[in-house]
Amino acid sequence: MRLISINVLKTGMVIGRQILNEAGLPLIQKDVVVTDGLISRLKQLDIQYVYIEDKISQGIEIEETVPIAVRKKAIKQITNAFNKIKGLDQKSASLVIEKQTKEIGNLVDNLLDSILNNEEILMILSDTLLYDDYIYQHSFQVTLYSLAIAKEMGYSESDLRTIGIGAILHDVGKMVTPSEILFKPGRLTNEEFETMKQHARSGFDILRNLHTVSLLVAHCAFQHHERIDGSGYPRALVDYEIHPFAKVIAVADVFDAVTSNRVYRKKMIPSQGIEIIEAGRGTMFDAKVVDALKKSVVHYPNGSILLLSDGRRGVVSKQNDDDAALPCLRIFEENNQLLNTTYQLNLIEEPNIAIEKVETEYILEVE
C-alpha cells in the first residue's frame, strides 16, 4: 500500500489501510473501493492522507510501533483523568490528579515496555478527526515521542518514567483554559494568546503539590514552551535555566503539533515536521534533543513515494534502523518511465543520491 493525498484520491481506487475514527473504531474498512461519496466524507472529516493499494506498492505493510488497542486504552485513560478536573480550581484539580497518578504511572510503564522492547524507529500514523479530542491524543503522542527521544539519549528507566509522566501531563493546564480560546479556528488576539500562555503556569500550579510524583513533572508542564534562546514562555528562560526533561518534551510537543491536524492548520508529513524542528536546532531547541528526534522517529513512513536526485521514483518499502532519514525503496520509475520490473534500493548504500521530495500527489498514469 502507499500514501496519497486526499486531493488526488479517485473513484475506483482501493483503500489499503483501515481508517479509524476519534474513538479508535473502524470508520472505513480496508479493501473498500473508493466512491465520490466516500471522498466527500473523508474531506468533511478533514482527513489529509489515506493509504491505497496498487501494483507498485503491493505487499508493503504499515505497522505502528504502538498497536491501536494500546493507543485506544491509553487515550481513554488520559481523557478520563483530564476531564475530571474541568471546571475545578487548581487546589481541587491537584487533589483529583493525585488520585490518578498510580494509573498514569502504570500507563507510562506500559508505553515504556513498547518503546524499550522495540528496537525499530518510532512510527505513529494518526488523524485527529475531532478537534475537541486533540489534547488527549496530543498528550499520548508527545509521550511516545518524548520516550523515544529520551531512550535515544540514554536516559535511565527511572528518568524515562519521570519524562513519560511529565509528557502525559504537560498540557494539563489547558483544562482550565477557556474552550473558546483553546479551540478558536482563527488567529488568537494578543489578549487571547496571553490567556493561552497561562496554561503552562496553571499546569505547574496543579502539579507542584502532588506527593506521588516528582516535582520535575510539574517543571515539565511549566517549561515545555520555553526556548533555549529565551524566546519562549511563560518566563523567557534560556538554555541553562531549562530542565533537560522539559527540553525533550518541548521538541516532542512541537513535532507532534505540526504533524497532526489542528483547528487552524493542516498536518505535515513527518519529514516536513523534522525540517521545522531542524530549523530551530541550537537556537530554539537543544541540539542534542533534535539529533535524538531525527534518529528515533520515522522520517518517511512506509508507502511514501519519494523522488530522488537522479530522477528515479520509489515507494518506501521498509525503514533502516541505522539511519531513519535513509529508508529502503522499491524503485518503480526511472526518468518518468515506468519499469516493467521493480527493484530494491537501500539509500544507506547510495551516499551520492539525495531525496528531492515526497510526492503524496503522485498518480500512476495507468490509474
Rank of each mutant, 00 (worst) to 15 (best):
I85A: 02
T162M: 03
E194T: 02
G87T: 07
R330Q: 14
R17K: 15
K91H: 05
F204I: 00
P244H: 14
I249P: 13
Q141H: 10
I353E: 07
R227P: 01
V66K: 10
V176F: 07
L95F: 13
E64V: 04
N209Y: 05
A257S: 11
S146W: 10
N117W: 03
V254A: 05
L42K: 06
L88C: 03
V96K: 09
I168W: 12
H225M: 11
D286P: 04
D321V: 04
E226T: 00
L293A: 00
V108L: 12
N352P: 12
D291I: 02
D310F: 13
S231K: 03
N21F: 14
G105M: 12
L111I: 14
Y300C: 05
N7H: 10
I115V: 12
I56N: 11
V96Y: 04
K99P: 06
A252S: 14
V315R: 07
D205N: 13
L293T: 02
K288A: 04
N336F: 10
A354C: 05
N335M: 13
E191K: 12
C328S: 13
G12P: 05
G311S: 11
I363M: 12
V254W: 09
Y131G: 06
D310L: 08
I39A: 01
Y136M: 02
R17E: 02
A257F: 11
R17M: 02
I276S: 08
N340L: 13
P67I: 12
D36E: 15
G303L: 00
A246S: 15
V297R: 09
D159L: 07
E359K: 05
I277C: 02
Y362D: 00
I331N: 07
I269T: 02
P244K: 13
P178A: 06
F285D: 00
A200P: 02
A257W: 08
S271G: 03
H243F: 10
L122F: 13
H138L: 01
A325V: 08
P351S: 04
L307G: 04
T162W: 09
N21D: 15
R208Y: 12
F285G: 09
E349A: 09
K174S: 00
V50A: 00
N118K: 08
S202G: 03
Y49C: 03
H199P: 06
V96G: 06
I242F: 01
I206E: 06
S317C: 07
N302F: 01
R235V: 03
P244T: 01
M153L: 15
N118S: 09
I75K: 03
N346R: 11
E361S: 13
F140K: 01
V8N: 05
K151F: 04
E191T: 13
Q44E: 14
Q58T: 11
L88H: 04
D239F: 09
I97W: 15
N80I: 09
T128N: 10
S94D: 00
G173S: 02
I305K: 14
G311V: 03
T342N: 12
G230P: 14
D239C: 14
E241M: 15
E61K: 15
E333V: 05
K288Y: 00
I269L: 05
S5L: 07
Q29W: 10
R41L: 03
I135T: 07
D323Y: 09
V50R: 00
